[in-house]
């Protein structure tokens, strides 16, 4: 699969290329800023764009804006945003239009190469990968709505679901059986009045739509 990288730190760009190549991606273009990124995407129409949030010239949210521009001009292009810090607002911007093929992860997650590659592949396949810290921020402001009815364990499961993990992944993360996870998920769906669907990414979509629906 062809990928494009936008990252202004040359040092880190080298590492990212190696990691992506390990995951079976072919890095067809690298850019150091949003302009270069848009040009590269226009030229190569990649199957993944890996984007740093803070880039020249403003070093604030250039990557987020570039990602939204990519999604607007070439819908369906999977984008993964990387950042030193994750911010709920950027995630909300990113997820506001469409939640499939979107990832938003802390840069330090790249260091866990296997997990990171799995997350990126999930996004490239149209799935979602949200950093646990973003999920925590998204859940934070929702204590007055139905989420308040969830138990602590169910909130954990919902968080992992929102990250884009499968039942097996959740079971592994929480060190419980897969059937226990399935039971939690059914409870969550019941409490949140969500239709039960089994495809991995559609349930994430449902969770995110729920998260997105109640924010202003």
């Amino acid at each position: 699969m062809r990928a494009v990288i936008a990252e202004d730190s040359v040092l880190l760009r080298v590492g990212l290329i190696k990691v992506l190549e390990m995951g079976g991606f072919q890095v067809v273009a690298e850019a150091g800023d949003a302009e270069g990124l848009l040009a590269a995407v226009a030229e190569h129409r990649p199957e993944l764009a890996l984007i740093d949030v803070r880039m020249p010239p403003g070093f604030t949210d250039e990557g987020v804006r570039a990602a939204m521009e990519i999604r607007r001009r070439w819908p369906g292009t999977p984008v993964v945003l990387l950042s030193q810090y994750v911010e709920e607002r950027y995630a909300a911007d990113l997820l506001s239009a469409n939640t499939s093929g979107v990832g938003y992860l802390l840069k330090q997650r790249v260091a866990d190469v296997a997990d990171f590659v799995a997350a990126v592949r999930r996004v490239a396949d149209g799935g979602t990968a949200l950093d646990p810290q973003v999920v925590a921020q998204l859940l934070l402001r929702r204590d007055s709505d139905p989420l308040a009815r969830l138990t602590l364990r169910e909130r954990e499961v919902l968080g992992l679901m929102a990250e884009g993990r499968s039942n097996a992944g959740i079971a592994q993360a929480l060190v419980v059986s897969e059937s226990a996870v399935a039971k939690h998920i059914n409870n969550i769906f019941a409490k949140l009045d969500l239709p039960v669907v089994d495809a991995d990414h559609r349930r994430v979509l449902a969770v995110l739509r729920f998260l997105g629906a109640s924010r202003a």
């Binding site: 202004d8 730190s9 040092l11 880190l12 080298v14 590492g15 990212l16 190696k18 990691v19 390990m22 803070r54 070093f59 030193q84 840069k107 330090q108 790249v110 260091a111 866990d112 190469v113 296997a114």
Partner: peptide, 25 residues
């Protein structure tokens, strides 16, 4: 903040990524 973000933080992430690559490869 900017200096640390552009310098040390990227370097540390790169270090961690390379160590991760070493383990994986």
């Amino acid at each position: 903040e900017r200096d640390l973000h552009d310098g040390t933080q990227q370097r540390l992430v790169s270090l961690a990524v390379n160590l991760g690559l070493a383990i994986a490869t």
